[in-house]
Amino acid sequence: MFQNPTDQELANLLKTSKTVAVVGLSDNPDRPSYEVASYLQSQGYEIIPVNPRIGQSLGRKAHRSLREVEGPVDIVDVFRRGEEVDELVDQAVQAGAKVLWMQLGVVNEQAAKRAQDAGLTVVMDRCMKIEHQRLLGGAEL
């Protein structure tokens, strides 16, 4: 059965990660993906938008898929339905990601196991913004 990393492990990965590819990032400030990514950007993370339906978000060019992202990615933060996560596992591995993070409400145990078997740390059904604020005391926007 899947188990999220401990608070200590989460705090450590949030402290050591720099680049976050946000799959499903919207260009609409009213969407949760935009709010979370904007917060993470304000905390010093480099945000890479991944969404084939937009041209850019948060001042950064959007990529159609993780396959288009150049350079290493520390965290792949997923704002997609749970059943869509499985296809992202291989892309996350190819992107050099260390962490596959599924946002609140995103659950896929099979994808989590595949990602763990490929060497990724997996966080499931947790919000990166909430966890960052809780564990590292990030400023509220």
Rank of each mutant, 00 (worst) to 15 (best):
E109C: 03
S57M: 06
L13T: 13
D74V: 02
K18W: 06
K15V: 06
R31F: 07
E9A: 14
G96S: 10
F79L: 04
L136W: 06
A92E: 01
R60W: 07
Y34N: 11
E131H: 06
T19M: 10
L104A: 13
F2E: 05
D77Q: 12
Q43P: 06
S42H: 11
Y34W: 14
T19N: 07
M128F: 01
V123F: 00
M102P: 09
D27C: 06
C127A: 11
S57N: 08
P29I: 12
D74Y: 10
E68G: 05
Q3V: 15
V50W: 01
A139Y: 08
V78S: 02
V20Y: 02
G71L: 02
P52E: 07
S42C: 09
K18M: 05
R67F: 09
D125R: 10
A139V: 15
R126L: 14
E70D: 09
I75K: 08
A62L: 08
Q41E: 13
Q3Y: 13
Q8D: 11
P32T: 09
I48G: 01
K61Y: 04
G55P: 00
K61G: 05
M124A: 09
V106A: 08
S26T: 04
F2L: 10
Y34T: 12
G82H: 09
I75P: 03
E87C: 08
N51S: 12
S57C: 08
P29R: 11
S26N: 01
E70W: 00
V76A: 07
P5F: 08
D27F: 06
G119P: 05
A11D: 00
P49S: 14
G71Q: 08
F79G: 01
S38Q: 13
R114F: 02
Q116E: 10
G96Y: 08
G59S: 11
K113C: 04
Q8H: 05
V69P: 03
Q94T: 09
L14Y: 06
R31Q: 12
S33Y: 01
Q56A: 15
A11V: 08
A115L: 01
L135V: 10
D27V: 05
R60T: 15
A139N: 13
M124V: 12
A95D: 05
Q91T: 06
L25T: 07
C127M: 03
D7R: 11
E83S: 13
S42T: 12
L135G: 11
C127S: 07
D117V: 09
L25D: 02
S65L: 06
Y45D: 02
V123M: 03
N28D: 15
L40Q: 01
A112I: 12
V123N: 01
G82Y: 10
Q116D: 00
L141H: 13
M124H: 04
